[in-house]
Each structure stands twice: as structure tokens, then as C-alpha cells.
Amino acid sequence: MVTTLSNAGYPPGTVITGKWRKSRYIVERTLGKGANGRVYLVHRAGVRQRYALKVGYDALDLQSEINVLSALKEQMHNAYLVEADDHQDSSGDVPFYVMRYIEGDPLHRFIGRRGKEWLGLVGLNLLEKLSLLHASGYVFGDLKPDNVMVSPYGKVELIDYGGVSSIGRSVKQFTEWYDRGYWNAGSRTGDISYDLFSFAVMCIQVLDEKALREASRQLPQTRSMTDLVMLVRRNPAFKPYAAWLNKALAGEFADSREALNQWRGSIRGPSAGRARSRQQDTPRWLRNAFALSLFILACTIFFLFR
């Protein structure tokens, strides 16, 4: 019933052939592995186009994930799922599906490299993705930095749809820190607030991981959302986001559009504290650059007509 892969996975050059649809994919390298399967970077035989291909450990678990992706495919223009099929290897039939290859870094690594001031933009892009998903009637569930891929210019893609469930159903997969239940802050029924709570914890982690770790160390029965609120209040780094975070932690956003708009307001609006002061620096820098380029232009024209 359960198909297991050999521990090593497929080496580069392995050809994965679909049993039903006959597509052929060539493995370039392993992208990662998790509880449900192993993901490879592949290209279609004879074509440049690269994809990510997930080989599942269990046909039922993988099909569950595929079902969600195909439902989403009908609603979203930029489809994530390409196709699903089975492949025969030494251990028998193994199920796989092919998806868009998402380049970039997971959220925490991106922010670690590029700086915390990117959180505003990345957060905005992520909230946009989430509200699309919510509008389709789904909750992401297992929202954590690992599952948020950020491209070099802050564009965001969600990966790993194994935790997605319909709104109103129980959340299938979750991870302690980002789980509302873990903080005694509400149920594990999937609603939009569940995702927004996880989103808030991710922001806290990105801005002050140490404090989050400390808060999580106390006794389970005393853990509460108030600890998170206090932690946000203590560190000035949270200032621009504090009002938003408090609302998300308390589950007070009516829908993810409202959450998105308020986030946008808090990073760009007149009340944006730090985030805005940074933006004020930029025009000066730009003005200088502009002055420089004007100067260069003048010189060029000067020499041109000399």
C-alpha cells in the first residue's frame, strides 16, 4: 500500500516516464525532500523548459495534494500543476506530479540575506497570494517560511500544497510555532484567520526569532497569544506592523482583502513609521542619481556637438 523510494532518490540523468500520459522528464538534481515525498528539478525530454517534479511516498497522500492543485488550476490563470502520472522504478509504480519550478529562496533565508526592510513588500505579495487562495475557498494551512519562496525582487510563490484544506474543514498539516492551537489562540478549523495567524507568527520570527523561541519554551498550558502581543510591543522593530500583527493574532480581520489593505496602509500609508522613513531616504538617493545622470547627459551632448 505504501510505496517507498530508496533513500538515495534518483541520480541526475534518470528518466521519469509517465505510465498513462507518456511524458518523459529528465532529472537534473534533487530540490528537496519532506514528509510526503521528494522533489526534483527536471526538464522535459528534448525541451529546455524546467519543472519541479514531486515523487510521493504514498499514492493517497499525493493524490490528495494533486486534487487540491487541480481544483486551483481551474481558478487561477498561472497554473501551478502541470500534470500527474505514475512512473515505474525498481520498487514498482510510484506516483508523481509535475509543477512549475519556483526559483528563489525560502522566506527566512531571503530576509536574512536581503534585510528586514524587505518584509513589507514580501509580506504584501504573500498576502496577495493568500487572498487569491482564500477567494477560491481554500486555506493554506501549513504556512511557514519553508513554504514561502521569494524571488530576487520580492515576488512570492507558495509551495507545498499538502496542508491545503477547504474553508470550514480541519487543517490537515500544521507546524507548532505557526499553529493557532499551539498558542491556545483558537481552533484548528481552517478559516482565513488561521492563515493570517500563521502569517503573523512568521513576521515575528523574521523580525525577532529569539523572542519567539523564548515565548514558545514555556509550559503548554500557559502559552498564549498575549505572549506574542507582548513580544511585538517590546521590540521597536515591530513598530510599523504592530497594529496589523495584533489584529491578525486576535483573529479580527473580517477577510484577507481587509488584511491586505491594512498591510498596504501600514507599510505605505501616512502612519507608516520606520518603513516610511526608509522610503524617504530613497528619493534623496534617487535625486542624486538623477542629478548624476543629467550631468552625464549634458556631457555627452556637449561632446557630441563640439
Binding site: T3, A59, L60, Q63, S64, N67, A84, D86, D93, P95
Partner: peptide, 22 residues
């Protein structure tokens, strides 16, 4: 078994399983 079903049938069966499991 489930593994031997073609993709579209498998998808339907798993949908039923998930629904009942919930």
C-alpha cells in the same frame, strides 16, 4: 487497488476518501 487506478478515477476515489475521513 488505488495505485492501479488510472489518474482520473484515482482522483475521484481519493476525493471520496478525504470527504469521509473528515
Amino acid at each position: 487497488s488505488l495505485e492501479e487506478l488510472p489518474p482520473d478515477k484515482r482522483s475521484q476515489v481519493v476525493e471520496v476518501v478525504d470527504e469521509l475521513a473528515e
